[in-house]
Design a protein around this nucleic acid. Structure first.
Lengths: 398, 398
DNA sequence: TGGCTTTGTGCCGACGCTAAACAAAATACG
DNA sequence: CGTATTTTGTTTAGCGTCGGCACAAAGCCA
């Protein structure tokens, strides 16, 4: 069994997530000797994944010999990341460290045929690769629906005109092979739900860094999505359908939901619910999320808007409290409308969650807004980087 | 860093959980060569943890040289396991493989002082060790309440007269050191919630064997508990308080609960709720669980009892469906009253769960009754065995 | 009886790591 | 200003684990 240096993967992950700025901390984080850390860093540099800056660093004040600094190689290989959302798709090349190297303007509408969309997106990515001349090590795709394992089918993509059960992973893989992207000979494409990938990205590079059990909740256009990262790995359940949090009951007297219950989070705490509670008509010109966020930011002084925000915060808090009781995460990150609600009145949400979660008195869970631009896109890239993080020697084969 | 043979732990775990009956399957399960598997088995035998039967086995029908068979050493070391429950405590010695080697009659009542109870229980265990002459490698304790990390305090032990926040782990450790159990010099005692430990035991030795994401739900006397085993490890959350499933809403028009909501699983699907729905008065002579289980088994023909069972199954199903939407487990195991409800009408429960879980159509999650006697006790032993499973060489130090 | 198949074992080498000594680059202190 | 101290990086030797291989053992099948 030809297996590479086993500390190689953890070491790359530390540099990738910014937790190993020098060889010295690499040594302590990995729990190995300086000799090993040095050899590992040298090998990662030889693979073209990281760079070492051995110039006399502008001294951090501590005594002793200053460390050489480790960086992700900014001119190194990239992965192709694509995100499908209700307003169109977006394509980017993402390097190690979650840095977006190049983006394509993408497209503003989503045709009904998933195969076409994915082929177009991959073509845009291929063009980016040609322009930049970067080496490509894999590809990841974020879609705004549940992705069922083991086949990678998009279930119930409500916001798109796609058929439920569309085999998006297979279509993505086919688009990749058809495009013949250099380096990705045997197509290596991964697909995930956008909120899951947001969670992954925030855990690696954003507000979730360092959390052990990270819960994310986000609302895009319609409905509410959730995601959980445990010990650095996405928990997507046995068939990829975990964290379908939209049908927690948050308002026993609420409106009936298509799921058969009533007062579900999905219909009580999404942008449409917010606009409704504020007495606004959803206009067709911009997205529901955009309208709701604008309302929160610009008209929060309006008592009606304020009351609607309070109402949604209370419902959201109830849902999050339920999740806290079940999952007991050590950090919570909110995205989309929920991020805007949190920022509008952080204390109210934290109070509701603490009050309604069983052991809320004992400290309370930190609740933070997401902190990355394009986090789902970066998360899709994380998916593609994962094999390299697991065993950096695979770059030799691509 | 003096570290033992790294395949040693996984190998012992395979034998321990009954998944490696021979060296041949050990080879394939570990993904190592026959040479390594042989060496590992020899070392485990030398440590006194397993035994190898090299007699010509009564040929399993397949051709080729028959394998020698691997067993857990039935005369090997044990761990001390104790369980506190509303009706008293129980103490046992448990060997590898989850086999109960000896039990103490225990005690039928629980005094108000946890320190006394734990000292008594440890004394009983100490007596068992003296009688059997076994070597003891650790100790585990199961308590009927949440156990908060990192300090191991029993929160809100409703069924006991103990104060909330009692430092049970510390008290257990002190009892162990005071008892001076031979072998356990520096006290190695672990404490966990009983439903969590039931899940652990069922996953290793019972109906949960082979599951990757295992969800357990059980109701003892009052309230409902949950537990989750992910990738073979208990998920108890960042502070040990995960899977507090009792306050999922399962009856929006239900009675108000002390948590501030109404219709919680805790008060809608426990033995008291069942007796109430069946129009029976809870008698003081036996436990609530016993009364409810007897009613289900012996008077299920009674229409009132049947209707009460249906009602509770529907509520329980609603709660389980909510958990399925959030956790997406690949197997579910029920204990206590819920086990009895499942056995009374398996199809009804499965139908409710499939109907109310979002993706229930696609197959449905297997729901099974628990299959071990004294599973919380065995789970407490698993906790104590864990260090040995992680690195079998620790037995040399004890 | 002689293949065939599968399992167990002994030997050797590859390789990833530790340990220990040494070298280098900064600060601290006289 | 020079030496001691601290921390980091590198070199070398050596150990332990595991893979690869050859061979032996123990059953089926013809």
């Amino acid at each position: 069994m030809e297996r590479g240096r086993s500390a190689l993967g953890p070491a790359l992950e530390l540099v990738h997530t910014g937790r190993a700025p020098t060889r010295a901390v690499l040594t302590s984080e990995l729990g190995v000797t300086r000799a090993t850390a040095g050899a590992v860093a040298a090998e990662l540099e030889a693979l073209g994944l990281i760079t070492v800056d051995s110039r006399p660093t502008a001294s951090a004040g501590s005594q002793g010999r200053p460390s050489h600094r480790l960086f992700v190689n900014e001119r190194g290989p990239v992965v192709l990341a694509a995100q499908i959302h209700a307003d169109g798709y977006r394509v980017a090349l993402v390097g190690l460290g979650g840095r977006i190297v190049a983006t394509s303007p993408g497209c503003g509408t989503i045709p009904e045929d998933p195969a076409h969309v994915l082929a177009d997106a991959v073509a845009a990515g291929s063009e980016l690769l040609r322009e930049t001349g970067r080496r490509c090590l894999g590809a990841g795709l974020a879609v705004p629906s549940a992705v069922a394992e083991p086949d990678g089918e998009a279930l119930n993509p409500l916001h798109l005109a796609w058929p439920s059960g569309a085999p998006v992973r297979e279509l993505f893989l086919r688009a990749l092979t058809d495009a013949g992207i250099p380096g990705v000979t045997e197509a290596i494409g991964f697909t995930g739900n956008d909120v899951n990938l947001m969670a992954l990205a925030e855990h690696r590079h954003g507000a979730g860094r360092g959390a052990r059990d990270l819960l994310c909740v986000a609302s895009g256009h319609r409905g509410v999505g959730g995601a959980l990262v445990l010990d650095g790995r996405l928990h997507s359940g046995s068939s990829g359908l975990a964290l379908e949090v939209g049908h927690l009951t948050v308002n026993p007297e609420g409106a009936p939901c298509h799921c058969g219950s009533r007062g579900c989070l999905d219909i009580e705490a999404d942008p449409l619910a917010f606009l409704g509670a504020a007495g606004r008509e959803p206009g067709p010109e911009v997205s529901l999320l955009q309208q709701a966020a604008d309302l929160l930011r610009h008209e929060y002084a309006d008592p009606g808007v304020r009351a609607a925000a309070d109402l949604l915060i209370d419902r959201l808090g109830l849902g999050i409290a339920g999740l806290v009781n079940i999952l007991n995460p050590d950090r919570i990150i909110l995205g989309g409308l929920h991020r805007a609600l949190l920022e509008a009145d952080p204390e109210r949400l934290r109070a509701v969650v603490a009050d309604r979660s069983l052991w809320g008195r004992s400290g309370g869970v930190p609740i933070l807004p997401c902190s990355l631009d394009h986090n789902s896109l970066v998360g899709a890239a994380e998916l593609a980087w994962q094999p390299v993080l697991d065993d950096p020697l695979v770059v030799l084969e691509r």
